[in-house]
Design a protein around this nucleic acid. Sequence first.
DNA 1: TCTCTTTGTTACTCAAAAAGAAAAAAAATG
DNA 2: CATTTTTTTTCTTTTTGAGTAACAAAGAGA
Lengths: 217, 217
Amino acid sequence: MTFSEENYLKSIYHLTAALETEVSTNAIAEIMETKASSVTDMLKKLAEKDLVNYKKYQGVSLTENGKLAAKMIVRKHRLWEVFLVEKLNFSWDEVHDIAEQLEHIKSEQLINRLDDFLGNPTEDPHGDPIPDANGRIIKIEKHLLSELSDNQTGVCVGVKDTSSEFLKYLDKQGIALGSKIEFLSKESFDLSVKIKVDERELSISNKIASNLFVKLV
Amino acid sequence: MTFSEENYLKSIYHLTAALETEVSTNAIAEIMETKASSVTDMLKKLAEKDLVNYKKYQGVSLTENGKLAAKMIVRKHRLWEVFLVEKLNFSWDEVHDIAEQLEHIKSEQLINRLDDFLGNPTEDPHGDPIPDANGRIIKIEKHLLSELSDNQTGVCVGVKDTSSEFLKYLDKQGIALGSKIEFLSKESFDLSVKIKVDERELSISNKIASNLFVKLV
DNA sequence: TCTCTTTGTTACTCAAAAAGAAAAAAAATG
DNA sequence: CATTTTTTTTCTTTTTGAGTAACAAAGAGA
């Protein structure tokens, strides 16, 4: 499998996971920053290899093979991210690009040993779940901070947006995975939210609040 | 720099290090298992980028830029090998192919942090020196076992042949880096050598003895 | 000199990926 | 329902990296 094929699979996986439905050629073209015609070509190639179900004009979905292959790529990506953060002291906003390269290294043995070395983590540094060697994923119950009600309390367990800017903002505000967050109140005018993080009161915009996942406690 | 360019640089580096002279197009073609004409193409490309000194008909050598670039690739390769052996418990005969992939990951930060994480090792699992971030290499005094005289004693510090077969043979014989090796005598008929390894007497062929490096003690 | 080997050049081939234009199909609109 | 718009596909090209084949030139030895 070429790098490009792997990247397509990964994109389709993320899109279908979010939408729970077939994805359109254009949707793929957009997030991969390429042209629809290029996507069509690749879809034919992937269909040939029984990695996607491709019916012209109808969108694509992953076959079982494709889903497993995509999960293995995601697994590699996220395990390498854990490695970079836990072992090499990178911060969570620096790891994406490097993991993007490392995810294409081909060796099952390597990734399984890395998994063991890291203590079989179930989440990456952004709180996203890591598929195990069989592709199984442990889902945890999580809610967007923006959707809590007044006075509910949660622990930060993930971020939706993993861009470097957002993560750096969180660092600056002292919000990290594991932070205890109390939802105090929502401002009806701009939907901004008053929260208390580790005893500090803070006001965050709705955009921020709708990119933070918390687990209720 | 493409993978292929990096692989050429690395090959030229190894060839020139061994021979201390210009290398011929044909010599490169042979170890890279390709045709002389392909090599010529690449040499032009590398000369364009000021990575090699290429004078038609005269062979190539690395420029300072090229030498540094090659050393950085070797550095990555050998550091990843240390990682695989020390942290992921691979054996020394299993790591080459994986390191061959990992050496192409592009991130200076990554490799320097990996270096620190591993405790700034100076040799890889086969006893070969690891260039530091500036390309400096610490050479140690080492001799081929086949060239010792009777009753000299040394410690195994490296192998010349790093093929999986040879390394597995050494494992089977209980010879590893750090093994104390006493040179007992050489058989003049076939040049085979009697040695004592950790209190066990052993007879090894000349071929084996000329692929083992020892440091005299 | 003649011949052989080494080395280099030029012109192709091939594959992967992507792009553009135009055709075809599906969806939306009045 | 007919027409328009949007989406998707098809077909044709381009680009890039890699490599091959055939031929030309240089140099070495007899």
